[in-house]
Computed example of a mutant assay.
Amino acid sequence: MVRLPLTAEEVERGQRLGAMLRRARGRRSMLEIALEAQVSPETLRKIESGRVATPAFQTIAAIADVLGLSLDEVWAGISQPESIAAPA
């Protein structure tokens, strides 16, 4: 199966997702969150850095759960430009 290149919108959404997860993680270590979410620390690092712009739904759901984020919050945060999505 050939994967099509990501659109600019998908790349931006992935970057917003990564930024949101980093903010929600706060001072907790990446390793701690990854272990609790049962994903590899490398996967979490790639998502947080925006290198994986379209992670699997189950992966995001698990990470969001560990971070105390609802999927509605995640969707709202990644669907809007950073200036609107960032908490005041």
Results as ranks from 00 to 15, higher is better:
R22H: 08
R22F: 01
R23V: 10
A24E: 11
A24T: 10
G26R: 14
G26Y: 12
R27Y: 08
R28N: 03
S29Y: 07
S29A: 02
S29F: 04
M30P: 01
L31V: 10
E32F: 08
E32R: 12
I33E: 06
I33A: 03
A34I: 03
A34S: 10
L35K: 12
L35R: 15
E36N: 09
E36K: 13
E36H: 14
E36I: 01
A37C: 07
A37Q: 11
A37D: 07
A37W: 09
Q38G: 03
V39Q: 07
S40Q: 03
S40E: 02
S40D: 04
P41A: 05
P41S: 08
P41N: 05
P41K: 09
E42I: 02
T43M: 12
T43V: 05
T43P: 01
L44R: 06
L44N: 06
R45T: 07
R45I: 01
K46D: 10
I47G: 05
E48I: 08
E48M: 09
S49E: 14
G50C: 05
G50R: 13
R51N: 09
R51H: 12
R51M: 01
V52G: 00
A53E: 08
A53Y: 13
A53C: 06
T54E: 08
T54Q: 11
P55R: 05
A56C: 00
A56M: 02
A56V: 00
A56L: 02
F57T: 09
Q58D: 09
T59E: 03
T59I: 00
T59D: 01
I60F: 08
I60D: 02
A61R: 15
I63V: 15
A64V: 02
A64W: 03
A64Y: 06
D65Y: 09
D65R: 12
D65H: 14
V66G: 01
V66T: 13
V66M: 01
L67R: 13
G68I: 03
G68W: 06
L69R: 13
L69G: 05
L69A: 06
S70K: 04
L71W: 09
E73C: 00
V74E: 06
V74W: 08
W75F: 10
W75S: 05
G77V: 04
G77R: 11
G77W: 13
I78S: 10
I78F: 12
S79M: 13
S79T: 14
S79D: 15
S79V: 05
Q80Y: 12
Q80R: 15
Q80K: 15
Q80F: 09
P81S: 12
